[in-house]
């Protein structure tokens, strides 16, 4: 049988879930815009992954 009546406790839980959801969304947005900002300001776009790539050879810097 479904719960049809909303108790005050459900409102509190709804508020908490909404708060957590919005916080996570804000976190995703911050990471996204921080990444955009870093790349626009010349930050590294590829990390070192223990293999030689053309972009890290001496010729790439000449």
């Amino acid at each position: 049988m479904p719960i049809t009546e909303t108790h005050e406790i459900h409102n509190r839980r709804m508020g908490r879930n909404l708060g957590v959801g919005l916080t996570l969304l804000a976190f995703v947005a911050i990471v996204f815009f921080l990444t955009v900002s870093k790349i626009r300001n010349g930050g590294a776009m590829e990390g070192f992954d223990h293999t030689v790539r053309p972009s890290i050879t001496e010729e790439a810097y000449e």
Binding site: I3, H7, I9, R12, R13, G15, R16, G19
Partner: peptide, 21 residues
Amino acid sequence: MSDFTANTSSPPQEATFGDYL
């Protein structure tokens, strides 16, 4: 009949998002 028993009294222990803030 339902196998769910609702506790209708309001427990004071339930926190709001504001409590965590």
